[in-house]
Design a protein around this nucleic acid. Structure first.
Lengths: 337, 337
DNA sequence: AACCCCTATGAAATCGGTTTCACGAAAGCG
DNA sequence: CGCTTTCGTGAAACCGATTTCATAGGGGTT
């Protein structure tokens, strides 16, 4: 049951011989060194073509000290199930990296410990850079960055930190969503927040509050219900809001799932969406489109997010100074508001 | 802006010196060669511990010819958006592989061409094995397998092919779903299929047909509507079924999204679910839970699917003869049927 | 014309493990 | 008791690219 190896891969030594140059020159040609005589470049390229040569990554990595590998680090515990965008982002990252001759290494593991296997792995110099999703503890990332490893993270980090990150405009999206509700005539707009410990949830809440400020008022504290992004919490918090009897006529939910939960609670209480209460969600997920009523929602460009992560990493590897990027969101208007 | 490198990593030569043995012995110890004297094993392990040594992957790969890298290959065009399980499966794979000292390489690219970059990459011997998702063209996979590369695929392949694959029991799930509808008193159960060119869609259709057979009849051809897994197609095909006026009172949709579309069409026509028509979906996605009415659906164990893919790969790498695995499905009963 | 500098190039060292091979010692055998 | 095996071990070759370093020519300067 052993592998019947195909033709043994070509090496520099063969190419060098066939092209009548030294291995050093082959290397120079393949790495785009401009100093090589055009004739030889052509000769080498011809042979490379004919032999169907492919660079041996491990050998190149060993010799150059660069692995051409970028890790995508995902925390095992939380992200996979809670973040529906994970796949899309990763694919965007992978595509962009691949176009730049880099490979994507997928690391799904518990990232919490600064001393765990992931930490060791990353610090072992096995990868040229790391992209983090769903950052909860920043200690590890901070340390890696300090050691000189190029790091880009998805989502706004907590602290002052000078990490480079990419995020959707949670604040702006929430602001726009809330203002839309107000513009639709809602007098008392409430919000159901997501996990406000994480920055995304917090920013969406801030956007909501800002809409009130821009109207010259302050949102009543009772108009803020704290959910956790789940359908159940949306339903539950909506029930609580209704019980408070504040005359709520508009809801900004921090994601679509909670918006759907809220609508379920509203309809169970005998009211209707959007006639009695209007609802806006966040994410513009497939559910926003298929739910009845369909849900007005804040759209994030997830593909672009992934691609941006990849691009920033590439620029960072090239030594550029790079800045965090906030991607715009867009309000998609449907039946619910 | 250059990396302030931490301590330069330890190497065999240091370990060998410190432990008073040769580098060859260090290698043997670190690779678990049983022939080494226990005293030396202990000595080496102690030094390794103290120095916090980490194996240099590139060097090891170069010397041994094994990369310890397994590729997950995903076709750019289709899978990412259409398959909601992608992320979950990948994470399962990655976790299992990591527990076995293997890394997961994510390849998102167009896989169609037998001569494209992915093909080249895989044939370049850069990885020790490959796991394919969403297989459309089998040519490349077939060739890789023939060349001795361990290959495992997710989903049942088309042909006779002797590939090793892992799949959910689409046939059994569909059979169970349809029988459930019949048991609920449905006299005329129809189905909305997914893409029947792909095996999963076909198997679900076959399961549906089998339910009729087991009842001793044959399903009327007009009871079969062909969708494409999208919400819109579910709605559209349901409309068509209703227009045929066959007295349909049960629907098995090949996924939840189409089930939701079907329900939308049913309610728009003035009928109600489940009173007039009962509906069963497939996937047990989050939408099945949050939709109103909530949807009875066939559940697949996606996490297990990913883990199984990883496990099969590991066993294959170990040289075991392995067989395809079909994972059981489970009918989750909710309001719609 | 003598001298210096720059450029293109190849020989050889190097990266850090793995594996082959040879050898001495210990063990098994007749 | 002498001879063949087996066992543990280290020296050294090796994996395939990259990179340093030395060198031979070519060009320019005065």
């Amino acid at each position: 049951m052993v592998a019947p190896q195909a033709k043994p891969r070509a090496t520099y030594s063969e190419i060098a011989k066939a092209a009548g140059v030294s291995e050093a020159t082959v290397s120079r040609v393949l790495n785009g060194d401009p100093r090589v005589n055009p004739d030889r470049v052509a000769a080498v390229q011809k042979v490379v073509e004919e032999l169907g040569y492919k660079r041996h990554r491990a050998a190149a990595a060993l010799a150059s000290g660069r692995s051409n590998l970028i890790a995508i680090v995902i925390d095992d515990d939380l992200s996979v199930f809670s973040d529906p965008f994970w796949a899309t982002i990763s694919s965007g990252v992978s595509r962009v990296l691949m176009q730049n001759e880099l490979q994507t290494l997928l690391l799904v593991a518990s990232v919490d410990s600064v001393d765990g296997p992931v930490a060791h792995y990353l610090q072992g110099g096995e990868v040229d850079g790391a992209i983090f999703f769903q950052l909860h503890k920043e200690t590890l990332v901070k340390r890696l960055a300090k050691q000189g490893m190029p790091v880009v993270i998805s989502g706004t980090p907590h602290g002052s930190s000078d990490f480079v990150y990419v995020d959707s405009d949670n604040f702006g999206g929430a602001l726009q969503a809330t203002k839309h509700l107000m513009a639709q005539g809602c007098k008392r707009v409430a919000t159901i927040t997501g996990d406000t410990v994480a920055t995304a949830g917090n920013q969406r809440l801030e956007g909501f509050l800002q809409a009130y400020r821009e109207r010259g008022t302050v949102a009543n504290k009772n108009l803020i219900a704290h959910g956790d992004y789940s359908f159940e919490s949306g339903k539950e918090q909506m029930r609580i809001l209704l019980e408070r009897d504040l005359g709520v006529d508009g809801i900004f939910a921090a994601n679509d799932l909670m918006a759907i939960g809220a609508i379920a609670a509203i309809e169970e209480s005998g009211l209707s969406v959007p006639n009695d209460i209007k609802v806006v969600g966040f994410d513009d997920s497939i559910m926003a489109q298929t739910s009845r009523p369909s849900i007005t929602s804040v759209r994030q460009d997830i593909v672009r997010l992934g691609e941006t992560l990849g691009e920033l990493m590439i620029r960072k590897l090239a030594g550029e100074e790079i800045e965090p990027v906030i991607l715009p969101t867009e309000l998609v208007i449907r039946e619910s508001a």
